[in-house]
Design a protein around this nucleic acid. Sequence first.
DNA 1: CACCAGGCCGTGC
DNA 2: GCACGGCATGGT
Length: 247
Amino acid sequence: MDENLRETLLGGQSFSWRDNGDGSYSAVLDERVCTIRSLSDAASDPFLYDYFDLGYDYEAAREAIAAKDAILRSAVESTGMIRLLKQDHWTATISFILSQNNNIKRITGLYNRLSERYGHEVEPGWYTFPTPEEMRNASEEELRAIGTGFRAPFIMDAVAKASLLDEIEALSFDEAMSKLQTIKGVGPKVASCILIFSYQRREGFPLDVWMKKVMKEYYPGKDPSYFHPYEALSQQYLFSWIRNKAD
DNA sequence: CACCAGGCCGTGC
DNA sequence: GCACGGCATGGT
């Protein structure tokens, strides 16, 4: 089955990637510009091997999801293989705080402006996403000037509580959800995205406006545990499916 | 001019 | 516990 690199990289999991327009994608990760045409480019790179979760059998998971019910089969067959990226905890936290009541295009713009303002240049025009230390002296006014709007105080709170992210790994899923939600601007949806896309907690099932519609229309009376043990990946296929179906 | 975007917070009941 | 309005900003 073909990889759907576009959906994996640009579909809302990460806001780091840029479409180069020639079939390749680039992002600043691991203090360098990474460029990918296919997953084989990542296999020999230890950092990218981990980032793209190449040790997990996505083909087997995809088949199991498709076999679960007719809706999931449609969702899976409507697109190529989707993966779950393993991103840096801090980058993911800020990314999904930015994502609330927002759209992918604008989230990406905010992500890039934060990088240019507080990160550092690794190649001409290519900036790292800033670390908590690099954002330590940021002010709410600066963050508003960048366009983060009402999310500015949330980002300030995340900077102050950044060390909390190191404690998440050792916690159970429910404990981790609660802990993340002690950061302002982090609710159930944002917390589950952080856990899935940077802590590899595959039991996460983000319920955004699209997924609430899917659950109500196609899975009335059911809850995310129905999709166990493929909650997160099922959600990604259903999300991609319903979003593209609406276009 | 409305209304929406991969929600969350504060308030009121 | 649940329902509701408000929220910065930019696009349609």
